Amino acid sequence: MATQQLFNEALLKLAIMMYRIDGKIRLNEQELVDLIADDLAWEGVNSITAVQSQAVAEVRDAIRADKVEAYLAGLKDALMFDKKKALDTARQIMQSDGEEAQKERRLYDYLRQQLLV
């Protein structure tokens, strides 16, 4: 069973993936991810800033290698700790800029219909 901290780290990685997947990084999406990070009860060994920086690099590599689903599958167990919050967070980021990019929608649908079921 995943812990709250593992969930927090996975949620942060999911949030970063959601705003970076379409290749268009908008300020409001970045601000929303920062708000999500600020709201996490962080108890990790590494600082939230360090985890966030590492996640940005991991997400960028997963997108470049076309291994987004595999990357998210690696987060599944931790995200299942609170799958409703994970899905709500993904949806919130997807809708934050007033338009749903196709890649964001596909990723959200994958989460909702296949990964977090």
Rank of each mutant, 00 (worst) to 15 (best):
A70L: 11
A41Y: 12
K85V: 12
L11I: 12
L27K: 13
D39R: 15
A86I: 05
K83L: 00
A15D: 04
G74R: 07
L87S: 02
K83G: 00
A57C: 05
A57E: 14
D77V: 15
D88E: 13
V33G: 01
G74Q: 07
L79V: 04
V51S: 08
N46I: 13
A10S: 06
K67H: 10
T49D: 13
I25K: 13
S47N: 06
N46Q: 15
S96P: 03
F81D: 02
A90V: 04
D39C: 11
V68T: 13
T49N: 09
L12W: 12
M80D: 10
S47K: 09
L40T: 13
D66A: 09
D61R: 14
A57Y: 14
Q95P: 03
E29P: 01
A50R: 15
K24I: 10
R60S: 05
A86G: 02
L72T: 04
Y19E: 04
L40V: 10
T89L: 04
L72Q: 03
V68I: 14
K84V: 13
A73M: 14
D38M: 06
E69S: 06
K67N: 07
W42A: 03
E58H: 08
R91C: 03
V59L: 04
G23H: 07
L11W: 10
K24Y: 08
V59I: 11
R91H: 11
D77F: 13
N46Y: 15
V33C: 02
M17L: 08
D38F: 09
A50P: 04
D77W: 13
A50S: 13
M17T: 11
E69F: 12
A50M: 10
E43V: 09
A55V: 12
I63P: 03
L35R: 15
A73N: 14
V68N: 07
D77K: 15
S53Q: 14
A15R: 07
A78N: 09
A78R: 07
R20F: 00
A10V: 06
A70P: 03
W42K: 08
Q95E: 15
M17F: 05
L79Y: 05
N46S: 13
R64F: 12
Q30K: 13
Y71N: 01
S47Y: 11
L79T: 02
E31Q: 07
I93Y: 06
D61H: 12
V68M: 07
Q54G: 03
A86T: 03
D97E: 10
K67M: 08
A41H: 14
Y71W: 05
A55W: 11
V45E: 15
T89K: 07
A78V: 02
D39W: 12
L14N: 01
D38N: 10
M17E: 01
A65D: 13
A90H: 03
L79K: 03
Q54N: 08
L35I: 10
R20P: 00
I36C: 04
V45G: 09
A10N: 02
